[in-house]
Computed example of a mutant assay.
Amino acid sequence: MRRLILNADDLGLAAETNEGIERAHREGVLTAASLMTGEAGFEEGVRVARANPGLAVGLHLTLTDGVPTLPAAQLPSLTQRNGRFRDDMAGMGLTLAVSREARAELAAEVAAQMARFAETGLPCDHVNAHKHYHLHPNIAAALIRAAAAAGMRCLRLPWEPGTLVRAIEAEAPGTGEWAIRPWCRFLRRRAARHGLVAPDRVVGLAWSGHFTADRLLGVLPHLPDGVTELYFHPATAGGFSGSAPGYDYPGELAALIDPRVAEALAGTPRGGYAAMLLPNAA
């Protein structure tokens, strides 16, 4: 059977994302969201989660382009002078690969973000990473170990079948599927050994920040059986602190509240990660 997760990243980033995610859930088809623990909108994001118990909320682990949960002074290998995480993902990835100290900082920050989420009292539906940085081997290893130790059961593995996207737009940009698919297969096996499961595929990578209603309506009939995560970045406006240049945040919100989308999804099981991936769990 086909089951869908409609997830929004960046809950807790800013007032605009928090309001957009709440509207996309209350007025539209959004079923899940991923919470950032170090950003300015964190407390308001927690309020949104508590006010909407039907929204499955997980941890959006942030290790680049964001604010750490631990003091930056405790993370010298991972942060800049301004106290934010480093934005040179390739350079920071190399640091993690060669530096034992950096890996220790990574483990401490992952634990801190998980602890801050736990302090909210919210059930943690899933875990994923900002900018899919958990594709890095050291980050993946740290995340999987910490998630399993915390009792989490679900995570995102960001593989998008190019055939699905090209069925709608033949000229859609590639997402490195040739490399990501085998790596995600490896990570899926590794996660399974720790009791973690992931959706079969993710849709929205090629259209990140531009997942319009027409694209969503176009791809829905092509989705195969199994669990598909469709991921979005809804917000009421762009231009806020931490926003991605060029992203059409209101356009993605419009897609999620479009009545045509709700009609197209009628009768299709949809929910959070755990509800779709572990439907028989107690």
Rank of each mutant, 00 (worst) to 15 (best):
A172F: 07
A141M: 10
G267S: 11
A275H: 04
L196M: 01
M114L: 14
R47G: 05
T120S: 06
G93L: 10
A170G: 12
V202C: 12
V46W: 00
R181W: 00
P71N: 14
A90N: 15
G151S: 06
M89Q: 14
L217Y: 02
L96V: 10
R145M: 14
A213R: 09
D87P: 00
E109M: 01
D214F: 10
L11F: 02
D88A: 11
L223Q: 00
A179Q: 10
A148W: 08
R116W: 05
G226S: 03
T228V: 15
G195A: 10
P259Y: 07
L164E: 05
S243E: 12
Q113M: 08
R3A: 11
G239P: 11
C124N: 00
A107S: 04
G45C: 02
A32Q: 02
N82K: 13
G38I: 10
R156W: 02
E44A: 15
A198T: 00
N18E: 04
R23M: 11
D225M: 06
T17D: 04
G54A: 08
R50N: 11
A179C: 09
A237E: 11
R156S: 01
V46C: 03
R270G: 04
W178M: 07
P123K: 14
D225T: 12
T95E: 05
M36A: 06
G121P: 04
L143N: 07
E105P: 08
R100C: 11
E263R: 12
L35Q: 05
N52W: 02
L59P: 00
T175V: 12
G195K: 13
T212R: 12
E22G: 10
G267E: 10
D9V: 12
M1C: 01
V202Q: 10
E119H: 12
R50G: 05
A107T: 09
P158F: 08
H130C: 03
L13P: 02
T212Q: 15
T120P: 00
P123S: 01
G28D: 01
A264R: 11
E19P: 01
E109K: 01
T175F: 03
G226W: 14
T31E: 00
L196H: 03
L135Q: 07
P221G: 09
P68F: 03
N7Y: 02
T17V: 14
A146T: 13
G209R: 05
F240A: 13
L143R: 14
N52K: 05
E16K: 04
A282S: 08
L75A: 09
P221S: 15
A56R: 06
G28S: 06
S208V: 14
H130E: 11
E105Y: 15
P173V: 12
G66I: 00
V67A: 03
R47N: 09
P173E: 12
R190S: 11
L55P: 04
A33Q: 04
R145P: 00
M114D: 03
G162Y: 03
A115H: 11
L278Y: 07
A32C: 04
R23V: 15
R3F: 00
G121A: 09
E109C: 07
M152G: 02
G218R: 12
T37S: 13
R145Q: 13
L164V: 08
L253K: 10
N82S: 15
E22L: 10
A192H: 04
G271Q: 05
T31Q: 09
T175L: 03
G151W: 01
G242W: 13
G238P: 05
A191K: 00
R260N: 06
L122F: 03
F117G: 02
N128C: 10
H134W: 03
